[in-house]
Amino acid sequence: MQIRCPHCQKTNRAPTNRLHENPQCGACQQPILGQVIELNGASLQEVVTTNALPMIVDFWAPWCGPCRMFAPTFEAAAKEYGGQLLFTKVNTQEEQEAAATYQIRSIPTLAVFHGGQEIGRVSGALPATQLNQLIDEIISKTTTSA
């Protein structure tokens, strides 16, 4: 998968099965997982099935007010927890087939995946404290089951 470095903006190729190794940018040597990664339907399926890290997918749309309000909170969490979870988002307006495949009925919806399986789902824009609590639960759940 291609990931843009949040520090120098260079594009890096990172194998999805090695994302748990906290890859660094080839140009500036900074960690590249401290950001939200935009996925399309095909890349979402690839990352869900091959990624070793637990991941949170934010299903959103640009016309959705709560989605736009939640985006900075999700981005801040990605910066804080980037080495422990993979933070991704899917634009349901552009990726309607992916939204149908994952049975997204409302947005924003956060779906949590680990080991190729969905392990949780929350609908609605969460305040930072609730998102952090959810992330702590995911980390606890996935490290004890690993």
Rank of each mutant, 00 (worst) to 15 (best):
Q9H: 15
A125L: 08
R105E: 05
I107M: 04
F59I: 02
A76G: 03
R13N: 14
E21D: 11
F59W: 10
G65H: 11
A125W: 02
A100E: 00
S145A: 13
C67L: 01
T92G: 06
Q84K: 13
I138E: 06
L53C: 04
P23N: 12
L110D: 04
M55V: 06
P54I: 06
G120F: 03
T109Q: 01
A78K: 05
V112R: 06
P62S: 13
L44G: 05
R4Y: 08
T129W: 04
R18P: 05
E118H: 10
A78F: 10
Q93Y: 11
A71P: 04
C67Y: 02
C5W: 07
F113H: 09
S123L: 03
R121A: 01
R18F: 14
N12K: 12
G34F: 02
N22A: 02
T109V: 07
F70E: 00
F74E: 03
R68N: 09
L44M: 10
V36G: 09
E97L: 11
V90E: 08
G41D: 01
I107Q: 04
Q2D: 13
P62N: 14
T101S: 08
N17H: 14
V36P: 09
Q133P: 05
A61C: 12
A14K: 12
I32S: 03
K89Y: 05
E46G: 05
T50D: 14
E97A: 13
A42Q: 07
E21C: 04
L85N: 00
F87Y: 13
Q45Y: 00
E38L: 12
P23C: 12
V122A: 04
E75R: 11
A99M: 10
V57P: 00
K89D: 02
R68S: 08
A77F: 08
R18G: 04
S145P: 01
Q35G: 14
A111I: 07
N51V: 13
T11Q: 11
Q30E: 15
A61N: 10
Q30W: 09
A125D: 08
G26M: 08
H114T: 05
R18W: 10
V36Q: 09
A76S: 12
G65L: 11
L110C: 04
N132K: 15
H114E: 07
C8A: 15
F74P: 05
L39Q: 07
P54A: 00
T49D: 15
N12Y: 11
I119S: 01
T143E: 15
V112N: 03
G116I: 06
A52T: 14
K89L: 04
S106M: 08
R13H: 14
C8S: 11
G116Y: 06
T50R: 11
V90I: 11
L85Y: 00
H7M: 09
I139V: 09
T144M: 07
Y102H: 08
E75V: 12
G82K: 03
S145H: 15
A77R: 09
Y81R: 04
E94P: 04
P6R: 12
T101N: 01
P31W: 07
G26Y: 02
A52S: 12
F70S: 00
K79M: 10
T143P: 01
G83F: 06
L86K: 06
T50N: 11
G120M: 02
T49Y: 08
K10F: 11
L131D: 04
R18Q: 15
S140W: 12
M69R: 10
C67I: 03
I37G: 00
N51A: 14
M69Q: 12
A14I: 15
G124H: 07
